[in-house]
Amino acid sequence: MKVNDWDKLVSGVKAGDVRSLSRMITRVENRADGWKKAMQQLYSGTGRAKVVGITGSPGAGKSTLVNALASELSKRGKTVGIIAVDPSSPFSGGALLGDRLRMAEVAVNPDIFIRSMATRGALGGLCQGARDVARILDAFGKDIVLIETVGVGQDEIEVVKTADCVLVVCVPGQGDGIQALKAGIMEIADIYVVNKADRPGADEVVADIEGMLSIADQGKLDTAPVVKTSAATGEGVESLCNTLFERLVHARNKEQWLDKRVREEILSLVETQIMESLLCAWQESGALNKMVEAVLNKKADPYSLVDALLPDLSKEALNRQTAKATKTIIGPENS
């Protein structure tokens, strides 16, 4: 991709052109040449949008809730970007992205932009991919970005580190699921949503969550609220929206959290970059094949290969290089 193509896309995004927006997302998602430069150009115009993560088990009604929430936000004069993530096949690399199916109501609303993303395996990192897209939507001028994750698992905790506020969607009948929530998602939920609340058992789920929170959050002033919704009918969505605004104002936007988020992002970008560069070089040179063969033939073991093959990762070497780089970017320490 040519440099001036990127320039055109970046200025298109800043000017609010939808076609430029969607094309830029594709290029950045594909990590096309020049993507980091383009993100640099956008970065200064970002930081205004609020990012809301929506997670929960498959079939909990996340997409339907996102549809209802986006519709309500739009009624209140907010522009909304939606990122809906579904899994890629580990076999074919393909994906069936079906979240949009539940979002027909807001699909032609000019204030709402929906983008489906596939997880695309570990490389390239879903978390960073979704984070980049959220940032592009921010630069485009969206007030609120909703990120709908794939069904619950460790990945979702990752993606949700990008969000200013996290909704965890539960449904009646997942009694045992509460146990799982305690272990994993407990720490990242800012609001619990009990969806499909028109079904029997909803009040029990609310009681379960509140009971759990009363133990976990003892002494804390800031306990996550629990809101009942029935996204398909729209019941409770208004009240969820109110709760969301309250939480966006005072929860999590503390310096400590921002610090953590930037830290995460730098590390995650560095990690992917190192992994991609190594893979690219090793695949081109055939080194990776040779290593695999050596291990299979019992001529080497994976453990000794690690130290032998990696570039100089000693503390001294790394610090020397980092010191040089930070000096260029930030300037001498005492200035």
Partner: peptide, 12 residues
């Protein structure tokens, strides 16, 4: 098409 390695968006 999913099995052919494409990313398929299905809108119903």
């Amino acid at each position: 098409l999913r099995d052919a390695g494409f990313e398929v968006i299905y809108t119903g």
